[in-house]
């Protein structure tokens, strides 16, 4: 009994130790990246390459996600609001949900699944094939060369992708609400303009900047500290998606509380 309890405590201590170490390493990586981001020379080419990867290559998935989310939001809110005779509020419901919540969160989750896992895999492969060590030996700081462009790309591209998700979501909602469910287009657009304020859109964009930082930092951290060969690379990719998604959802709640 005592042995079992001791074993349990040892495991708990080990997990706590790992958690503290990981948190410390991630904080150090973020601090280093913040310093190196403003230390010349700044390699714009690397940053643009990552922006293209995180942003342009994620367009298809966020357009698809945003459109269908807007469509389903319109459909569901119409069914609910019809009971109160408030079908005219479908437009603002969709727009507000997209701008404040669904736009940034869905963009965050989808891009974490697509780009975050790929980033962790790429850096993890570089780690296990000694490419990161090779950078060190060539007097090139791997955090500056590999991590900084990815974090900058995440922070810059997430708000842009969120704007696109918001827009296609609203368009998707309009198509279902007006074309399919027969809401008057003038009422739909007019009510949306009445209820949605610029500050609602900005709340979503502020969140998306944080989500972009979380996605890129978590992916870089998991990839950079990969151990254990090919299996380790797979583990890093999975961890980056799971840890990134959970942190996005937790921070979404905290940001929503704070920004409200």
């Amino acid at each position: 009994m005592i042995g079992m309890f001791k074993g349990y405590l040892e495991k708990l201590g080990e997990s706590a130790g790992k958690f503290v170490t990981s948190t410390g390493l991630m904080a150090t990586m973020l601090a280093q990246a913040a310093v190196y981001a403003f230390t010349p020379p700044v390699k714009l080419r690397n940053i643009f390459k990552q922006m293209e990867f995180v942003g342009v290559q994620s367009l298809f998935v966020v357009v698809l996600t945003g459109t269908f989310t807007g469509m389903v939001m319109a459909l569901q809110s119409f069914n609910a609001l019809k009971r109160f005779g408030a079908e005219s509020l479908v437009g603002p419901t969709v727009a507000l949900s997209m701008a404040r919540e669904l736009g940034p969160v869905l963009t965050g989750l989808m891009v974490t699944g697509r780009a975050g896992s790929a980033m962790a895999t790429e850096l993890g492969t570089m780690r296990v094939t000694e490419q990161i060590d090779a950078l060190f030996t060539m007097a090139v700081n791997p955090v500056k060369y590999l991590v900084v462009p990815r974090i900058i790309a995440g922070v810059l591209m997430f708000p842009l992708l969120t704007v696109i998700t918001d827009f296609v979501g609203v368009v998707g909602g309009y198509m279902v609400g007006v074309r399919l469910l027969g809401i008057n287009p003038g009422v739909y657009i007019g009510r949306t303009i009445d209820f949605v304020q610029v500050s609602d859109i900005f709340i979503g964009l502020e969140k998306s900047i944080v989500f972009g930082l979380i996605m890129s930092l978590v992916a870089c951290f998991n990839g950079f500290y990969t151990t254990g060969g090919a299996e380790g690379v797979g583990r890093s990719a999975t961890s980056s998606v799971v840890m990134g998604s959970v942190l996005i959802l937790v921070s979404d709640y905290l940001l929503s509380s704070f920004l409200s």
Partner: peptide, 19 residues
């Protein structure tokens, strides 16, 4: 140390070429 490293070259076991 980075300045010192510029005096070195290193060949890794698998080459460690950037893919």
């Amino acid at each position: 140390f980075n300045e010192v490293r510029k005096r070195f070259g290193m060949l890794f076991q698998g080459g460690a070429l950037f893919d």
